[in-house]
Amino acid sequence: MSGPASEGTKLVLNGRHNADKGWISEIRRNGNSQILPRVVLESIPVDLLKKKKQRERAINLIIEECKEMGYDGIVLESWSRWASYGVLHDPDMRDKALQFIVQLGQAMHAIRLEQNISQSLQLVYVIGPPRSDKFEEYDFGPDDLRVLGDDVDGFSLMTYDFSGPQNPGPNAPLKWIHSTLQLLLDSSNGYNPKLAKKIFVGINFYGNDFVVSGGLGGGPIIGREYLSLLEQHKPQMHWEKNSAEHYFLYIDNQNIKHVVFYPSLMSIATRLDEALSWTAGISIWEIGQGLEYFFDIL
């Protein structure tokens, strides 16, 4: 769902109509699952972060939604939004941004769940990977991780979307995932197992079909589209050693050459091993976009 957004000076929380209560009940019946909807902060960060009352309103909106809907917490996305507004290069605003997340985490941890009194509301925070071996000022880095470590229950690390139509290639090179974890966990200054366990390494269950001749183009594909391409073109599969991903080439009916990178059991296994080597967890985007047999390895 969308999170608190500004309507003039008023904050509103949208997206409740997307909640499928029947599905949520079924999930709870079939196992010890927790429901944490993704919440995106769309309010203008300067207004939210500089005004104490606005921060408190946003936190109260989130907590009340969790109570009313019986959620176990939320997965919060805000860092990329704040970066796009250009506020994270300002040390004072960056500090206010971090303190807002700390304040939210502390407020959520003060609320005990009706369905499980021994547990409090959980906060998972979405973070993006750096695009190079050096952090830009808007990147979420090891210092930010340490500031939030006590008050955030998990960090959903978006280690995917490495390539795009402008630079066709693998979805999430294994070496890039490794270097991202190394940078984020700042292993040169001593490995922190407590923080490592809170990282959820992002694994994509979608792939990409990129144009590699006759211009630029293409984009994400999901399982049924991938299977359709295999059936139609019967391509030869290749293993790209540096990225640890499978890919194939095909030529469409307009004589345009494509390259398709899509997850395989082998590529998923290498990423699970990487996460395990750091004692980290995983997050999947999105589980319904993959193939049925992906579940065999999880």
Results as ranks from 00 to 15, higher is better:
residue 6 S to A: 12
residue 6 S to T: 04
residue 7 E to A: 13
residue 10 K to L: 09
residue 11 L to P: 02
residue 11 L to K: 02
residue 15 G to K: 02
residue 17 H to N: 14
residue 19 A to K: 01
residue 21 K to E: 13
residue 23 W to T: 15
residue 26 E to W: 13
residue 36 L to Q: 06
residue 46 V to I: 14
residue 49 L to W: 01
residue 49 L to P: 01
residue 51 K to C: 05
residue 55 R to C: 07
residue 55 R to N: 09
residue 62 I to F: 03
residue 63 I to D: 09
residue 65 E to M: 12
residue 66 C to L: 04
residue 66 C to K: 00
residue 75 V to R: 01
residue 76 L to G: 03
residue 76 L to P: 00
residue 83 A to I: 02
residue 83 A to G: 07
residue 86 G to C: 10
residue 88 L to N: 00
residue 92 D to K: 13
residue 94 R to C: 09
residue 102 V to T: 13
residue 103 Q to N: 14
residue 105 G to S: 04
residue 106 Q to R: 15
residue 106 Q to M: 07
residue 112 R to E: 12
residue 120 S to P: 08
residue 127 I to C: 08
residue 128 G to T: 04
residue 128 G to R: 08
residue 130 P to K: 08
residue 139 D to C: 09
residue 143 D to Q: 10
residue 144 D to I: 02
residue 147 V to K: 12
residue 148 L to Y: 00
residue 149 G to P: 00
residue 150 D to H: 10
residue 151 D to H: 14
residue 160 Y to E: 04
residue 164 G to P: 00
residue 164 G to D: 13
residue 170 P to K: 10
residue 170 P to G: 06
residue 170 P to E: 03
residue 171 N to Q: 10
residue 174 L to V: 12
residue 179 S to H: 13
residue 181 L to M: 15
residue 186 D to W: 04
residue 191 Y to H: 11
residue 191 Y to G: 08
residue 194 K to Y: 10
residue 196 A to D: 06
residue 199 I to V: 15
residue 200 F to M: 15
residue 201 V to E: 01
residue 213 S to K: 10
residue 221 I to T: 02
residue 222 I to P: 00
residue 224 R to W: 04
residue 227 L to A: 03
residue 233 H to D: 02
residue 233 H to A: 06
residue 234 K to C: 01
residue 236 Q to E: 15
residue 239 W to R: 10
residue 246 H to V: 03
residue 249 L to A: 02
residue 250 Y to K: 11
residue 251 I to M: 13
residue 261 F to K: 03
residue 266 M to E: 15
residue 270 T to N: 07
residue 271 R to T: 11
residue 271 R to W: 04
residue 272 L to E: 09
residue 272 L to Q: 08
residue 274 E to P: 01
residue 275 A to Y: 02
residue 290 G to I: 02
